[in-house]
């Protein structure tokens, strides 16, 4: 009876799942699977290549200038600071990356991690879920659940976690579609020109990466930052939480000032919950100017230069080698 049940019921399911799993893996790893999938091993490889590094930078693309600023600020060599930031890797992903690195047996003297208001806009994306799932060691999955619980739709995050565990394609379908469309149809995207006699009226460039730091988003974002700080405390002796400016809340309007004050206050309170987290507040008037941004979240060249100088001034002293303290460039505020 059991063999008949196996043959009739379970075998076709097992065969189908096996076949689909094979297809899924083939598609998911096709040309390495696109920029978001390729982004996952890149920082891990950077950490592997720097076995002597004692300082690590984590976070998303808004933190991509930290490594250089830290090296200059602390007068360290290139092998001392490892840049492990990852594109699109928001707070929950940073938490997963920190847990991953800790599980690899790495430990650092400092971990530096930056956030700005844009990273507090709750926007579920399959690819972000993919980064979290691929980086987070399975035994720490409850840490993710703890963060997802604070989202507006925990079922969606739980579903994303599940789907990214069973499929390599799910997290990257958008890239695959974009790639396939380009491959088959030779056009990257459908616009309104296909049916119009005249080209559509030109629209002004839409500002991207904006977030108004709304209450509904903050609950999730702060829970994720808290989770990231917990993981970073495991990874490093000292954690530097850098509060970064963003374009929407820059400028000298009362609303922007109020948003910045709220953002800084909430992060001060968050940092105070931890023993080894230091807050570096870069929301000073010199950096909160709209002209210093190339989009809603990222500083332009001039902004990076100013922010690097500002960060260097605020860096606490660190040990260059065991037993030796490097002088802080200026007093820590």
């Amino acid at each position: 009876m059991w063999s008949a049940l196996l043959l009739r019921g379970l075998l076709p399911v097992a065969l189908t799942l096996g076949l689909l799993g094979f297809v899924d893996r083939a598609i998911g790893r096709f040309e390495k699977g696109g920029p978001y999938r390729e982004e996952i091993p890149r920082p891990l490889a950077a950490v592997r290549r720097a076995p002597a590094a004692s300082h690590v930078v984590l976070g998303c693309s808004t933190s991509n200038w930290f490594a250089g600023a830290l090296r200059r600020g602390w007068r360290l060599g290139s092998g001392d600071v490892v840049d492990a930031h990852m594109s699109d890797c928001l707070q929950a992903c940073t938490m997963a990356e920190a847990r991953h690195l800790a599980d690899l047996g790495r430990h650092f003297q400092t971990a530096t991690f930056g956030v700005n208001a844009f990273e507090y806009c709750e926007a579920y994306r399959e690819r972000r879920s993919m980064q979290e799932v691929e980086l987070m060691p399975f035994e720490h999955s409850l840490e993710l659940a703890r963060v997802y619980w604070h989202s507006e739709d925990p079922l969606r995050y739980a579903g994303g976690w599940l789907m990214n565990h069973v499929s390599t394609v799910y997290g990257n379908t958008m890239w695959l579609q974009h790639h396939t469309r380009k491959l088959w149809f030779g056009n990257e995207g459908l616009d309104a020109r296909w049916f119009r006699r005249e080209p559509p009226p030109a629209r002004g460039r839409r500002e991207s990466f904006l977030c108004d730091y709304a209450k509904a988003d903050r609950d999730f974002g702060l829970a994720a930052t808290r989770g990231a700080l917990r993981a970073l405390e495991v990874l490093a002796d000292r954690v530097q939480l850098v509060v970064l400016p963003d374009k929407q809340n820059s400028g000298d309007t009362p609303e922007a000032r109020a948003a910045r004050e709220l953002f800084a206050r909430e992060h001060r309170e968050l940092a105070a919950e931890f023993q080894r987290v230091e807050l570096i507040d870069l929301l000073d008037p010199a950096l909160t100017q709209r002209a210093l941004f190339r989009d809603g979240a990222h500083l332009n060249q001039k902004g990076v230069k100013l922010a690097s100088q500002s960060l260097a001034k605020r860096l606490p002293a660190v040990a260059r080698r065991e037993g030796e303290m490097a002088p802080a460039p200026e007093a820590t505020p």
């Binding site: 076709p12 065969l15 799942l17 689909l20 297809v23 379908t173 695959l176 579609q177």
Partner: peptide, 15 residues
């Protein structure tokens, strides 16, 4: 049967 049903759902996810 299982193959057809799973493939339909899988293609839906892909697209």
């Amino acid at each position: 049967r299982v193959l057809a049903v799973a493939s339909l759902a899988y293609i839906a996810m892909l697209l």
